[in-house]
Design a protein around this nucleic acid. Sequence first.
DNA 1: CCATTATGTAAAGTTTACTTTCCATGATTC
DNA 2: GAATCATGGAAAGTAAACTTTACATAATGG
Lengths: 67, 67
Amino acid sequence: MKNRLEELRKARGIKQEELADAMEVSRQTIGSLENGRYNPSILLAFKLAKYFGMSIEDIFIYEEDSE
Amino acid sequence: MKNRLEELRKARGIKQEELADAMEVSRQTIGSLENGRYNPSILLAFKLAKYFGMSIEDIFIYEEDSE
DNA sequence: CCATTATGTAAAGTTTACTTTCCATGATTC
DNA sequence: GAATCATGGAAAGTAAACTTTACATAATGG
């Protein structure tokens, strides 16, 4: 799964830490998502979608058979 | 988080086991989602959405501060 | 230069999603 | 009323998401 988090965050002009605080997760979690180290839980995906005013599908790009 | 899995599955006239096979998860996983014992991973949510031809948001109902 | 700021990443631990195995129950159906 | 079928759910284990701590580095500002 790919995602547009870094792009969307930078468009908002905020730091990883600010986004992390808004989502109530650690800065490392945001960094890990931006750099593809793992996928978000569905709850975090919903929170991020709400924060950016978009759908989950607009932020996270599902690819067949992705890990 | 609530979801419409049982309703959607029954509308299709299929068993938990058949849905599980299509999603490549165990029957117990489908049962656990239908009965709210836990939330799906985002990958499974994407697979289910694709299977039912709907968006994740149409199947899974995000509620503020849900576990 | 030096201090600070933003980010990358790793290690070790906790929590949660998911598996396999197992048993129980209600609804057929024979 | 015994056998089968669909579901519920528990227990124990594995895998992945997430936390805290820690350190490294590049960029910037004084």
